[in-house]
Amino acid sequence: MSSLANWSYTAQATIWKPLGNNEYGDSLGWSEPLVIACDYQGGLSKRLGAIGGEKVVKNTIWTEYALANTGDYILIGASTETDPIAAGADEIMQSIQYADTFERTTDDWAIITGV
């Protein structure tokens, strides 16, 4: 972890990854919860219109964790719950990479969730 990330990523978030599907298309469940160092900002929520709902940004989570993917689930805070839905986690919509401008040791990531 870069010295700046060590200084700024003082919160925690928990990530769950899907384990895939069996031969019948049924979910194999979720990985064990993984707690990562981060910082975060709340965003918008679901917008309802005359023609239905629309996904919009809910939270942005900044971290050096590089393995978050669309379809994973993330929760602000530490959790040992094995089911991300039961834990209240949000689906990751996108993960964006940013350069480590000052130290060039580990890139930073913005993990964006939606509802």
Rank of each mutant, 00 (worst) to 15 (best):
G20Q: 02
N6M: 14
S79R: 02
V56I: 11
V115L: 13
S3V: 15
A87N: 06
M93F: 15
D107L: 00
G43E: 05
E91I: 15
I85G: 07
T82C: 02
A5Y: 03
Y24F: 15
G20Y: 05
I76G: 00
A37L: 01
S2A: 12
I36P: 00
I36H: 02
N21W: 04
Y98K: 12
K58H: 05
T105D: 11
T10R: 00
Y40L: 07
I15G: 00
S3I: 15
S8T: 02
A11L: 10
V56C: 01
G53I: 12
E91P: 12
E103G: 02
N69M: 11
G114A: 12
D108T: 13
T101V: 14
W30R: 03
I61R: 02
I96M: 06
S27A: 14
E81A: 14
Q41T: 10
F102V: 07
W7I: 12
A5C: 03
T82V: 15
K55F: 11
E54V: 00
V57T: 14
Y9E: 12
A89R: 07
A66T: 06
A13F: 08
Q12A: 14
G49N: 07
A11I: 14
Y98L: 14
Y9G: 07
N69I: 11
I51A: 13
L67D: 13
Q12C: 10
R104I: 11
I112K: 01
I74A: 03
D107Y: 02
Y9N: 13
Y24Q: 09
I15D: 04
T63G: 06
W30Q: 08
T10W: 04
G20T: 06
L28R: 11
N59I: 06
L4M: 06
A50P: 07
L34G: 03
N69S: 12
D26R: 05
Y65F: 09
Y65R: 00
N6V: 15
I112D: 06
Q12F: 12
E81W: 03
L34P: 07
P84Y: 00
L75P: 01
L48A: 14
W7T: 15
E103L: 07
Q94P: 02
I51L: 13
A78R: 10
P18K: 01
G42T: 15
A50T: 09
C38G: 01
T14M: 08
D26M: 07
I111G: 03
G77V: 00
T60H: 09
R47L: 15
E32P: 04
I111W: 00
A68P: 06
D90N: 14
A78D: 12
T70L: 10
Q41K: 13
L28N: 13
P18R: 09
Y65I: 03
A37D: 09
S8C: 08
I36K: 08
P33R: 08
D26Y: 01
A5F: 07
A66Y: 15
I112T: 06
Y98E: 11
V115E: 13
